[in-house]
């Protein structure tokens, strides 16, 4: 009796992600892959790397949210992932600000 109660408690929060979601994400990733390769052949000047990286970020978000279950995870886990990526962006920004300012005024 108490064992049954405990089992219910254990499983109430856990979310099982099913094949429908996985397939939808898979097809979205495939379309994005086709799109990013197609765009690579079009001359958009400075926008080419921007669009390629935007598509890559979108694909990465899909993988993290659905394949890696972050969309269904606890707030603690969401915060952990977000803060990890934020720290990475801080490091990139600070490193770039160093390189940009080394030859300040000399270009």
């Amino acid at each position: 009796m108490s064992q049954h109660g405990a089992t219910e408690l254990e499983h109430q929060e856990h979310h099982v992600v099913g094949p429908k979601v996985y397939l939808a994400v898979f097809f979205a990733l495939m379309i994005c892959t086709g799109l990013t390769t197609w765009v690579a052949f079009i001359d958009l000047g400075v926008l080419n790397p921007v669009i390629a990286l935007a598509i890559a970020c979108f694909k990465a978000c899909l993988v993290v949210l659905f394949f890696m279950h972050i969309h269904y995870s606890s707030k603690l886990l969401k915060l952990t992932v977000a803060s990890g990526l934020f720290i990475f962006l801080v490091l990139v920004t600070m490193t770039l600000s160093d390189y940009i300012s080394r030859a300040w005024g000399l270009w």
């Binding site: 990013t36 765009v39 690579a40 052949f41 598509i55 394949f67 890696m68």
Partner: peptide
């Protein structure tokens, strides 16, 4: 495994695509 996939998702445009 999905993490390794994500790394490739970024390597692919950076190494192959953006400077054609």
């Amino acid at each position: 495994w999905h993490f390794v996939d994500i790394i490739w998702i970024f390597l692919f445009p950076l190494l192959y695509l953006i400077s054609r």
